[in-house]
């Protein structure tokens, strides 16, 4: 009997304390909004660089006009990048203080060694050995982005163009390349 009364009483107490609250306890709220959640970070990363004095293009006073090397790189074809990168820009800056024109070419190969994308940047020679700045932005969107995402190997070629004074062990000046990539991600909740 005692216990019954007690429970009745405490029910009343709980009711008075909280009943009102449950009738007026919320304003309109919509948890489904979380489905709209989208992450759109922009990631900037340094890519390749070099700083080659003109003398690098000469061995025993004989000009070597082409340097070429490849990097096996699976970064662009990783699942996370493939799924979420919606656009990418590669920005290059070449400073040339050698009295000779150069061509820097970048080729993108897939895992069948088939070339998927390619571009080249030409910089003119600097007769006064002052920096001649050439910039280039390569935008990857749509098909070109798909080609980037298929890339397994990148080949970088720096070539002294024909014409002008041959490069030897005492040619002044440098060929400096800097590059960065901006990767635009879009990660959706649903």
């Amino acid at each position: 009997m005692m216990i019954n009364n007690l429970f009745k009483y405490s029910q009343l107490v709980v009711a008075t304390l909280f009943l009102g609250l449950f009738f007026s306890c919320t304003k309109e709220i919509d948890f489904n909004q979380a489905k709209e959640f989208t992450l759109e970070p922009q990631v900037a990363s340094s890519l390749v660089f070099f700083n080659a004095p003109a003398t690098k293009f000469s061995v025993n006073n004989t000009e070597i006009n082409t340097f070429k090397d490849s990097v096996i790189i699976d970064l662009f074809s990783r699942g996370f990048v493939v799924d979420h990168v919606v656009k990418s820009e590669f920005v290059f800056e070449i400073a040339n203080s050698i009295n000779r024109s150069f061509n820097v070419r970048i080729d993108f190969f897939d895992d069948n060694d088939i070339i998927r994308h390619s571009f080249a940047i030409t910089t003119s020679g600097s007769s006064a050995n002052l920096d001649v700045i050439t910039t280039h932005t390569e935008v990857f969107e749509g098909n070109t982005l798909n080609n980037l995402k298929a890339t397994q190997k990148v080949v970088l070629t720096a070539q002294a163009l024909a014409g002008g004074v041959p490069l030897n062990d005492s040619t002044p000046g440098n060929l400096i390349l800097k590059s960065k990539g901006i990767f635009y991600f879009k990660i959706e909740a649903s």
């Binding site: 340094s46 660089f49 340097f67 090397d69 490849s70 096996i72």
Partner: peptide
């Protein structure tokens, strides 16, 4: 510290290939 990769003309004049470098 990461400044990017330098496959063509590594600063250290070793026998290191671009592949090794990467």
């Amino acid at each position: 510290d990461f400044e990017g990769i330098n496959p063509l003309f590594p600063e250290i004049d070793s026998e290191q290939t671009a592949e090794d470098y990467w």
